[in-house]
Simulated assay, not measured.
Amino acid sequence: MSRLAQLKQTLGKNASEPEIRNPDDDDDLDDDELPETKPKEAEMADNVEVNAAVEAARKEGHTAGFKEANDRMNAVFASEHYAGREAAATKLLSKNMSAEDIVDVLADMPKAEANAALSDEQRKAAEEAGRKEMKDAMSETQNSNIEANGGGGKTKTDSRAVWAKAKAKVFPNSKAQ
């Protein structure tokens, strides 16, 4: 017996057809026709049973849904059209599509491997062209031995003199060596 059937049985046979009464019409009822009330303890026991049945049904539904989602994902991953289209398949799995629909869409898409090989060849060609351009630019200028003074013909200043000058500015009262 399924959990839903147990829930209906727990609630009663007429759970799907509740009797609806208007509170204003209670004047028409005789004392013999008044609905019976259950003691509070019996109502609480019924509520515990109903809550347990609802929780069991919720778990059963979650488990079934989780299994169905895994089966859908495995069907897409096992497809011959999955290889080379992994990113697209993952994106499509997040949509509300069946596994068959996703595989059909993947079949119409080009594989990423062909694009990757083409872009790898293009990358290598671009690097080689960049190297050639850099070599040509360096051979044109003949200025790969760059000097700090810009090659203006000035003589290089002795580094000791530069440091002595800086030291004199920082420590004006000290003797420069």
Rank of each mutant, 00 (worst) to 15 (best):
L92T: 05
K38N: 10
N145P: 03
T10G: 04
G151P: 02
R131Y: 06
A75D: 02
N14M: 10
A45E: 15
A56D: 00
N115P: 03
T141C: 09
T157A: 11
T155D: 10
N70K: 07
D101L: 01
T141R: 14
A78R: 13
A78I: 00
D31R: 11
D32Y: 09
R160E: 08
T155Y: 09
L92I: 03
A89C: 06
A114P: 02
R3D: 07
K124D: 03
R72F: 01
S16C: 07
T63S: 05
A114Q: 12
T90E: 07
F66P: 02
K8C: 09
S16L: 10
K156N: 10
D136F: 05
R160K: 13
S144P: 07
L4W: 15
R21H: 09
E128S: 04
I20N: 02
M97D: 00
E17L: 08
T155P: 06
E121S: 15
D46N: 12
E80D: 11
A112H: 06
D28G: 04
D26V: 15
L4T: 08
A78T: 04
E68S: 13
G150V: 03
K165L: 12
L92G: 01
A42L: 10
A114T: 10
D27P: 02
K175E: 12
A164M: 11
G61T: 13
A69E: 12
G150W: 04
D28F: 11
K95H: 05
A166W: 07
E41K: 08
G12L: 00
K59G: 03
K67V: 13
E86A: 01
E86N: 08
D108V: 03
A125W: 03
F77T: 03
G65L: 12
N74S: 06
A75G: 01
R131P: 04
P35M: 07
A15L: 12
N96H: 11
A5T: 09
A164G: 13
R85P: 01
A75S: 10
V105E: 08
D30G: 15
M109N: 08
A69P: 05
H81D: 07
D25N: 08
G84C: 03
L34S: 09
F77W: 06
V103Q: 01
V103R: 02
M97E: 05
G152Y: 05
L93K: 04
K111D: 14
E133A: 14
A126H: 06
D30H: 13
L93Y: 00
